[in-house]
Design a protein around this nucleic acid. Structure first.
Lengths: 150, 150
DNA sequence: TTAAGTGCAAAAGCTTTGCGGGTAG
DNA sequence: CTACCCGCAAAGCTTTTGCACTTAA
């Protein structure tokens, strides 16, 4: 990521910390900084490997905790990525997903307008598109209720 | 899932097995059957818990292996679902993903037309949409090359 | 018959937890 | 000063591997 964009993100981070009353620590800054440099959807472990270069004494635990914190603050996002904890889906026809950002629940929806999305040309990536899916990200009914009670 | 749809899917499975020359075993049928009943994007472990009721002697290993096989045959799909192996994304602005179904790699793309997707009304789910992302699923350059060589 | 699948046990990964010492505000 | 954070070690999960036995075609 470019330096200017990085500066802006670090500022955003500082502001969010003040808003939420959480301290800006050396480790948090270093971890954010590292994620901004890593461009390909790293796992927590990959971030750890990269950040150890800057702070040799840092622990895995801190990296896991901090990434979660940064995502909660909205300074980075969690990517929906096929990973170790795979979920299986018994629908093979075109459909879409509501993904709750609080509880990670996924709800199926069908919508004719979404089905008609025009697929962009991906040949410059050498990528052949077979099908697609729209993820609508937000907050589900249950989590919204819990929020209201707080 | 309704009985008719289930029958059709079990037939599809049988056909795919013949095509690929792999045996239709008792376990595979039971596991597929179970996934078709389970409607909410189950993990392998949740499928195991459900299928043990039918075949008490079945092992976790078989469930893991079979789900992978079924997904390879295209009889079920893997859902991109936030799970244990979370990936983090340093982009917080609107963008989309090319997801390779062979190697699980994710490539970022931006596309003005995709950005303009009309979000459907999700109020009947009590779901509040905050943003969205289009996943284009297919085969990446590297995997396509490997396929050609085989 | 025979290639492939299955179950078991053990290993390998990944992530979380509890706790004493340390640090930002 | 004081609440919150950090590192460590250990526990807890989930998933994969190697091997001998069993089974579908």
């Amino acid at each position: 990521m470019q330096d200017l964009a990085k500066e802006k993100r670090l500022d955003l981070f500082a502001r969010k910390c003040r808003e939420h009353g959480i301290p800006v620590t050396l480790q948090r800054r270093a971890i954010l900084n590292t994620v901004l440099d890593l461009d390909n959807h790293p796992t927590a472990d990959q971030v750890f490997d990269a950040v150890v270069g800057q702070i040799p004494s840092i622990s895995r635990t801190t990296v896991y905790r901090t990434l979660d914190t940064l995502a909660r603050l909205g300074v980075i996002t969690k990517a929906c990525h096929p990973g170790n904890t795979v979920r299986y889906d018994n629908r093979i026809e075109l459909h879409h997903h509501l993904v709750c950002q609080r509880c990670d629940d996924v709800i199926d929806i069908t919508d004719a307008r979404l089905d008609k999305v025009r697929i962009p040309d991906t040949s410059s990536f050498g990528f052949e598109v077979i099908d697609f899916r729209v993820q609508l990200r937000g907050v589900c009914r249950r989590c919204k209720k819990e929020e209201d009670q707080t």
